[in-house]
Nucleic acid binder design. Sequence first.
DNA 1: TCGGGAATGTGAACGCTGCTCACATTAGCC
DNA 2: GGCTAATGTGAGCAGCGTTCACATTCCCGA
Lengths: 209, 209
Amino acid sequence: MMWNTGFVTKRPYHHGALDSALLEAAMDVVANDGMGALSLRDLARTLGVSPSATYRHFPSRDHLVAAVSQRARERLATAMIVARDAVPATGTKANRSVRRFAATGRAYVTFAVQTPSLFEAAFVPCPVTPPTPEDPNAWSVLVGAVDEMVEAGAVPVARRDEAPLIAWAGVHGLSTILTASVQPPESGLEAGHHAAIDTVIDGIIRAIR
Amino acid sequence: MMWNTGFVTKRPYHHGALDSALLEAAMDVVANDGMGALSLRDLARTLGVSPSATYRHFPSRDHLVAAVSQRARERLATAMIVARDAVPATGTKANRSVRRFAATGRAYVTFAVQTPSLFEAAFVPCPVTPPTPEDPNAWSVLVGAVDEMVEAGAVPVARRDEAPLIAWAGVHGLSTILTASVQPPESGLEAGHHAAIDTVIDGIIRAIR
DNA sequence: TCGGGAATGTGAACGCTGCTCACATTAGCC
DNA sequence: GGCTAATGTGAGCAGCGTTCACATTCCCGA
């Protein structure tokens, strides 16, 4: 019996797509207010559902966190790929491979600066449901960009193995620094993030060349 | 009325040094189980004191977190200074300045790997009681090490401003990577952390030279 | 078409947390 | 010695994650 007793249309007993609705709402909350603001009860309230209903779809809060983290990692990798493929195919092959690499690195840091909460979510420890190497991740995109440079002769073969680590450390460190409230006191960052990004990416390229 | 009614010696009504005892206990909890395990009630319980007593010394949990974070930042900076000053005074001035710089960077990452929870605590956002540039911090130690290199002619003056940012991004990024559970899949890290640290620090030196 | 099991949602409860407030106790100072 | 400020207590509030018995509905097979 779910027919209206008055003018108000009652919600059906079953939500229908609570599963994805929970994840969507969770993504919104995290993107806006950070991972710490994620609350199952609050989500249930927003979706007009009882708190215990959420447990039919996520066995615990940590599982929801893991799902949000995976989506965040996907978005980061996608942003890097999009930026890399937007680089015009001009100049020498070596030059182009370097520009494509720089674009992926820039996209990494830009993602962190523009959506810091999602960046945080992407690297939050998920003891349950740990990330698998199969699904899209920033590391593989970075390795691919480095391989391109090696193939194009822009990076010596001897550095093929260590270059991705250096690159990742650089962009990830800069991202964390720019994202965190703990800013370097009296550094040159007031001039904006773009200068910092260029500085670090140029440094990375010098380091692996 | 606090005289014994039996053989057991009762604790005095006032703890005496609850202030520092709370901070000490908090440091222990954080170092062992991470920042998320910090609970005022739990602390009060272990110190044999009522939960509300803690609020006489820290107006909120966030203030305790900020205090722990500051101590962690102090320890990190101290570890870097100790490592730098342990470098033997051999070789040319330029060479020595580079070795001292490398030692500070190595100490940074080593601190993160050996005491990951304290490293995490050091960079946790503290909206209340934000870190001041006056008290010891890793950034200033790093800037000092770079300045030494510039003065010794090991780093061009033109890079004086950008070198600390590149260095910090590198060591901080590597620290975060090695600390986080999200490890680079199939990277060369299995050979141990030392190789990764050397790789990144050598890269940093190439980048700023 | 109907009936029954599986899937999904509900409401009340438990124990934990941070935090507040009125009150008790004590330390230190005039 | 007595008064004030500092410090500790206990009860209580609201919110959280989680569980459990129960209600409702979907869907598939007879």
